[in-house]
Amino acid sequence: MRRVSVTGRLFLVVMLLAFAFPFLPLLVASFSFRWHWPALLPTQWLWDARETTPFPVGWDYLFSPISGLGPAFLNTVVIGVVTALLAVVLSLPAARVLARYTFRGKGVVEFFLLVPVIVPQIAVGMGMLLLFMRIGIARTYVGIILAHLVPAIPYAVRILTSVFQNLDPRYEEQARTLGSGWLSTFRRIVLPMVLPGVTTAFLFSFLISANIFLLTFLISGGRLQTLPTMLFSHIESGAPLDATTAGLVLIVSVPGLVFLMISDWLTGDHAALGRTSFGSRSKKERP
């Protein structure tokens, strides 16, 4: 393998700075109390002002029951977990079929299962709100979870299809000819082999759900807050280096960070994220 050139190395460093550095000022801002133009660093820190503020600010505010951060965090996690579970359960059979069988109209089905990713969510969201109002699930957990399934299922199907593609059906057949029942074949042979892929699909669907803003915003109508909708209203009404917003940005980044660490630890492969989503498809498409 070729060594990276000097310009290449410089490029990598610049990119590293562009992606990692922006978190730093927010970290500083989250501990600031007064940080007005043109100060390069806060002129007063949070810990010096705690006694004199009329109400908690910054981290104190975020971690007090007032901010609503707790419920928002819990909502995000609950909605994310249920969405991910449903997405995986609903996508598993489809993925197995797409990986194992060729049939007429397969291309159409594959395309249909991909389209939600590229069709404007604002169109889906507005129509969905009216539909959900009709059946009485707008502004409920159910409504939000169902909304989140729209972008989650296509990814889950993609990931799980590649999982089944890598799973040789002959293992199953062999186990069954050796007298193993369907259930035990599934439990002993299939499950262990697909589990890492299923976990990835689950994590990926969770991440998608945890990062959705617009669909939640439209369907929840302010009644249920998640981390992204909470962050939205803070950015909308807050100053650039406002301590509370900055702290919230860091908290909202937590699910993603955890996801990244788990997926690295699970796969030991930094490229897995790309391969399991759409990279594999492109490879397959090569003429």
Binding site: P22, A29, N211, L231, I235, L241, A246
Partner: peptide, 13 residues
């Protein structure tokens, strides 16, 4: 892996 809104906050800051 972070929401677009995180990017928005950074760009503003």
């Amino acid at each position: 892996v972070v929401p677009y809104l995180v990017g928005a906050a950074m760009v503003v800051a």
